[in-house]
């Protein structure tokens, strides 16, 4: 019953957000601030995660592919396609679930328990339009940017790791990577990143917006937001793979 109650409130919040998305004047300033916090500030961690993921993937794939009749270009193909289709979106999604999700839930939760949201409402502002819409909308614009950064750094990291360790020459890596580089994979990755951004920010907004119980409630809302965001990222990843591939 609680699940249904939560789901109903979540849908109601989304409905209010969609309905108030036309009030650009209300959230315009907040939108860019959120885009900076969500996207620009997250770039270093996402690029780092992507680069290391690509590097590890190259080394581990080279370690596993010991059979002589499998060409080295296969490693490039595996790394590039894995980064583009899956890892760039999911790794950045999981990192951002912790970083962005926790921040949003904490911000909104604190505003809720300190009755700032009630104050906004009492001043005649639409709190959803003011707080939720810019955060969710910012993810639509910035998560694809973060995905591109993660994928690019992942491929470069994998290439660099292959060259430095001497396991995969650049020519072989690029040959394999180019051979299995398809436009649809990028579309799929970008779609995933947008969906993950929406899931993370909307769930975190919901958890923060409806937080109760003072500082403890805010902490609980933050934890729930981060954990649920991670779970929903993985669930939607599975769903999208089943539907789109």
């Amino acid at each position: 019953m609680d699940i249904l109650h939560d789901f109903g409130r979540y849908c109601k919040l989304l409905y209010q957000a969609i309905r108030s998305s036309t009030e650009i004047g209300t959230y315009y300033k907040n939108l860019f601030a959120e885009m900076i916090k969500t996207g620009y500030d997250s770039l270093p961690i996402v690029m780092l995660a992507g680069a290391f993921t690509g590097a590890v993937l190259t080394i581990q794939t080279a370690y596993q592919l010991v059979v002589s009749y499998i060409p080295l270009s296969t490693i490039g193909a595996i790394v590039v396609q894995s980064m583009v289709i899956e890892l760039a979106a999911v790794i950045s999604g999981l990192v951002l679930a912790g970083r962005v999700g926790a921040r949003i839930a904490t911000e909104l939760g604190t505003m809720r328990v300190s009755e700032q949201i009630d104050a906004i409402e009492s001043m005649g502002f639409n709190s959803v339009s003011f707080l939720v819409v810019p955060r969710v909308l910012a993810s639509f614009f910035m998560f694809p940017v973060l995905y591109i950064a993660a994928a690019t750094c992942g491929i470069l990291g994998g290439l660099l790791a292959g060259i430095i360790t001497g396991q995969v020459p650049m020519a072989d890596f690029m040959k394999g990577g180019r051979e299995y580089f398809f436009a649809w994979d990028i579309v799929f990755g970008l779609t995933k990143s947008i969906v993950f951004g929406f899931v993370i920010t909307s769930v975190s907004c919901y958890k923060g917006y409806y937080a109760t119980g003072g500082a403890e409630g805010v902490g609980k809302a933050t934890t729930n937001a981060a954990v649920l965001s991670c779970i929903y990222v993985l669930l939607t990843d599975l769903l999208l793979a089943a539907i789109l591939l």
Binding site: F32, A33, M35, I36, G39, Y40, L43, F141, M142, P144, V145, I148, A149, T152, I186
Partner: peptide, 17 residues
């Protein structure tokens, strides 16, 4: 300004893509 930062970030991302 935030708008400029965002614009530059998105522009660079599009160019890289």
């Amino acid at each position: 300004r935030n708008e400029v930062k965002v614009a530059i970030t998105i522009f660079i991302a599009i160019i890289v893509a």
